[in-house]
Design a protein around this nucleic acid. Structure first.
Lengths: 343, 343
DNA sequence: CTGAAAGCGCTTACAG
DNA sequence: CTGAAAGCGCTTACAG
């Protein structure tokens, strides 16, 4: 007849194949491979060599079927395009990737139906937990239905205060920006920002106002210049501010794109940035901030850390730890060349 | 004694629970749930109601253990940060998400060790296939080791021509850009681009040169102005080009960031864009292209489609179709305000 | 049309 | 120290 190969070519080698090749039972092979210490050294060596020979990789599905835990989590984003999701996602992936956890990525595209569909699929794959990444800092509705595994919301908090949400401290971020300008000796500070419909805009403005109040000052014009998040508004707003308040010596912008527009207009007007007028942005978006003239000082919200924290909290919750409560994280100032003491 | 609940509270309901509640065998419950037609309508109804009642979701792991296929694929990126990966990833996620396939996301961070580690993990989770997303268009080494499932490389081709690679046609993209400028009646065309160490730079330049040659023209200065991919180089290069070739009437830029810098310098110099000089970029990066002055015409490489194609090809390969061969996809011109006929 | 039995690849008490 | 047996949750021939 034909020669009988130890292992059929067309399928992944199983523990049975390894055991056969090593001349032991599957039970023993299992113990050897998993480093249990009730195995004679010589036996273990034989098993490991056999596994090596067959490039055996234990079937994680079979394992999961037993253990209860699968070592997988779902990462649910509502908007991959938005650049805020990406660093968060990287942070989370990193927090897990270091361990034994694999991450399912699902983009709901901002659609509740798609989201529900994805959740269903993830649950049927028996993920150990879920991370929900929002695309704005506004609260979002909690996941529909009863979710039998821990869930951590990140960036956008869940509207249900009972849920675990890891968010950015935008009020603190606004404070940070203004405190930096104050440290540069600025007193006549305007705030140009995005749409007031966004919590991010309102929160940053609130923080800015509070920092100014603490210094006995108020915002130039008495309130923020609300508009949109882009450069076009930044350019227009700079014209308005300079005209209405020629004494302006600093502008805190709600985004780097706005700041970029402000910078361009100030350049067109021949204003000296950073000395006559200092400008600080928000987001620390490298592509925008690192190549403007001058290069833009900005607030970085440490989104990658945020993702990593979310990953760790989920991990803890899965491990059955005390359900962690919600947390807010502050940002930091990244100095470039658009802010400096008056000179 | 105590009341006996139909299902213990603390674990996911199983098919056995459903069967018990419906008063049938697990075999019958399975058939009912899977829509096999050897089940009496009334029985099926009872089973479905029971499943509904328990919010039963079939355990995908157990299913996969049988069927051979898991309905999962691995998406291996080398650099999530790079903005090229994201649209590709969205396209792929979309191609799969529509079906029954879930996607594992792994970021190797450009590290071969991490990559090997992730591949190992994915294989032990028995993914049905792998998509490898590169971060530049330069060929990359194929995955190490023997991979027992289909692999599709996207954006960066595998260095092994026997592998399936889905890539962007950068030569064609360079052609497209120059053809557009020629259509605008331009004849004195310079090419400012990034580092010559990148295949993307060389390929686009090659396409540009070919299109010019076809029109009986050659590049202003005889060759591309190579530099770096950022705005700073764009600004510097524009000065150089204008000085060396005052007759310049169009500049093809190897990236939108370069183009943005070029635009700024031309503005500083008082040159009328698009009429005196037309400028076209590459990448169609909205944040950069849509807010410049004037807004930038650019080549879009349709990366999301690229990802979707990769997803479909992998799908076909998994289904056992003829191993698809490698493919290259052209881009398209996205008109904004920086190119126009001379006026 | 329905159900008892075998089996997917593994791990874990439990004997020996 | 080693192995036979049961079982994780499901599906699929095979009887009835």
């Amino acid at each position: 007849m034909s020669t009988e190969p130890e292992v059929p070519a067309n399928r992944a080698p199983t523990l049975t194949d390894v055991a056969k090749l090593a001349g032991v039972s599957v039970a023993t092979a299992s113990k050897a491979i998993n480093g249990r210490d009730e195995v004679k050294a010589a036996t273990r060596a034989r098993v490991l060599k056999a596994a090596e020979l067959l490039s055996f990789a234990p079937n994680a599905l079979a394992r999961a079927l037993l253990g209860g835990r699968t070592g997988t989590v779902g990462l649910l984003t509502s908007d991959l395009e938005g650049r805020f999701s990406i660093p968060i996602l990287m942070g989370a992936e990193d927090a897990f990737g270091a361990g034994e956890v694999s991450v399912f990525l699902c983009d709901a595209r901002g659609d509740a139906i798609r989201e529900a569909y994805h959740v269903r699929a993830l649950l049927s794959r028996r993920v150990d937990g879920l991370i929900v990444v929002g695309s704005s800092t506004d609260p979002r509705p909690p996941l529909a239905g009863t979710i039998p595994v821990p869930v951590v919301y990140v960036y956008a908090p869940s509207a249900d205060p009972g849920d675990i949400s890891i968010t950015v401290d935008n009020v603190g971020g606004g404070r940070l920006a203004v405190d930096h300008l104050l440290a540069c000796g600025r007193r006549e500070i305007a705030h140009v920002t995005g749409e007031p419909g966004f919590a991010a805009a309102r929160d940053r403005a609130e923080g800015a106002a509070a920092a100014l109040a603490d210094a006995g000052l108020s915002m130039l014009g008495g309130k923020p210049y609300y508009g949109s998040w882009d450069e076009t508004w930044g350019r227009a707003a700079a014209h308005i501010v300079v005209e209405q308040h020629p004494e302006v010596d600093a502008i805190f912008c709600g985004s780097d794109q706005i700041a970029r527009g402000v910078l361009e207009t100030l350049r067109d007007l021949g204003r000296d940035v950073p000395h006559a007028i200092s400008v600080i942005g928000f987001d620390n978006w490298d592509a925008i901030a690192a190549h403007s003239r001058p290069r833009l000082t900005s607030i970085d919200m440490n989104l990658e850390r945020l993702g990593a924290v979310a990953g760790r909290r989920l991990f803890e919750a899965i491990a059955g730890a005390e359900p962690p409560s919600s947390e807010q994280y502050p940002g930091r100032v990244v100095m470039r060349d658009s802010t400096a003491p008056a000179g």
